[in-house]
Structure formats: structure tokens, C-alpha cells
């Protein structure tokens, strides 16, 4: 749809890694009993991904399940399938206490790609992003400079950063500052 505005209007920047707005992704915040089989199954059904362990990011391409808290996951789905996914979740969990809401437009999703991606992350988050401590398959909710953010690594050389829509420009600019040429740290080899 031409009148759908993404938070960053597809902005991109080339530094020693590249920073760009990721393609629009449907997002559903789901709170409930994460040990419940029905909940785990419906998450798999709408995303096609396995259910993650604590702090896990289980992805099948651009779809997946991100573990956000002991009672919360974030589902990544095709943007057009959000209403249908919400219906399926509602049906599957109709007799269980849960909350599922569309947060597609509440968030911005930014791709950081290239060698040195960990160095860029480490400039902004207090989280330990060393390879022994964090890598593909995991999700970290934390802070980027002054705002809340979360990130995961689809591969060793790329990261996806998710933040609130209102601060998308701030986070994008932070990443550009951190990725600006000459700022290579060479810490994570």
C-alpha cells in the first residue's frame, strides 16, 4: 500500500558497517503462560518458527518468535497476516488468560550489516556482546544510549535492532554515528 509510512522512510547509511531500515515486519506482542502447549503451538503455527528458550530469538527467515520476558514473546510475521494471526491466537487461547496486540506500527526495525557489527552495538549498549556471551539465536533487551531497544543477530555479521517508533530517528542516528568511517574499533575480530 502506497500510503503505509514506515518510521524511517527506508533510510540507509554506509559506514564501516551499513545501517538501514529493515523491510516492514508484522509484530504481535503476546503475553501469557509460555509453558502452555497451546500457546507454544499457536506461536509456531503463525510464525513457522520453533518456540525459543529464555532470551532466545527463534527465526525462520524474517519470521519468528522472540523471547521478551518470562510471560511475553514478540511474534514476527508478514505485515499482511497480522489480523489473521491475531484471530488464530484468539481462537487457540480463547479459554486461557492472555493478551495479544498488534505492535507492528509501534516499533522500528533497523538492520546493521557488515564486519564490525558487534563493535557498533558495543558503542551503544551496556550489554555484553562478546561472541562467547551473545550470538545468533539470542535476543537481548537493553538500552541504546538513552532509550530502550532490543537486538538479535541473524548471522555473525549482522544485527537487527528494534526500538520504539517515536525514537526511530534517534536510534538510526546513533547507529550512524557509531558506524561512521574511522570509528572502527577492531575489538571483536
Amino acid at each position: 500500500m502506497s500510503d503505509v509510512a514506515t518510521p524511517l522512510a527506508d533510510a540507509s547509511f554506509d559506514g564501516f558497517v551499513s545501517v538501514s531500515e529493515a523491510p516492514r515486519t508484522g509484530m504481535i506482542s503476546l503475553r501469557g503462560d509460555l509453558s502452555d502447549t497451546a500457546l507454544r503451538e499457536v506461536c509456531g503455527a503463525v510464525t513457522g518458527a520453533a518456540f525459543p528458550a529464555s532470551r532466545g530469538a527463534s527465526l525462520d527467515g524474517s519470521h519468528g518468535v522472540l523471547w521478551m520476558a518470562p510471560d511475553e514473546v514478540l511474534l514476527l510475521v508478514a505485515p499482511g497476516s497480522v489480523p489473521d494471526s491475531l484471530d488464530r491466537i484468539g481462537t487457540a487461547l480463547s479459554d486461557r488468560h492472555h493478551l495479544a496486540v498488534d505492535v507492528t506500527d509501534a516499533r522500528a526495525l533497523i538492520s546493521v550489516d557488515g564486519l564490525g557489527v558487534r563493535d557498533v552495538l558495543a558503542k551503544l549498549t551496556p550489554a555484553d556482546v562478546s561472541p562467547g556471551n551473545f550470538g545468533p539465536g539470542e535476543l537481548r533487551r537493553t538500552r541504546f544510549a538513552q532509550v530502550a531497544a532490543a537486538f538479535w543477530m541473524p548471522t555473525e555479521d549482522s544485527a537487527r535492532v528494534i526500538c520504539f517508533r517515536s525514537v526511530a530517528t534517534y536510534v538510526f542516528d546513533l547507529l550512524c554515528h557509531a558506524a561512521a568511517p574511522g570509528g572502527e574499533v577492531g575489538y571483536y575480530r
Partner: peptide, 9 residues
């Protein structure tokens, strides 16, 4: 304490 910039708990 609240893990406010984390799991929120």
C-alpha cells in the same frame, strides 16, 4: 529493583 531496560520485571 526493576529490570526496566530489559525484561521489565
Amino acid at each position: 529493583w526493576r529490570h526496566a531496560h530489559g525484561c521489565g520485571k
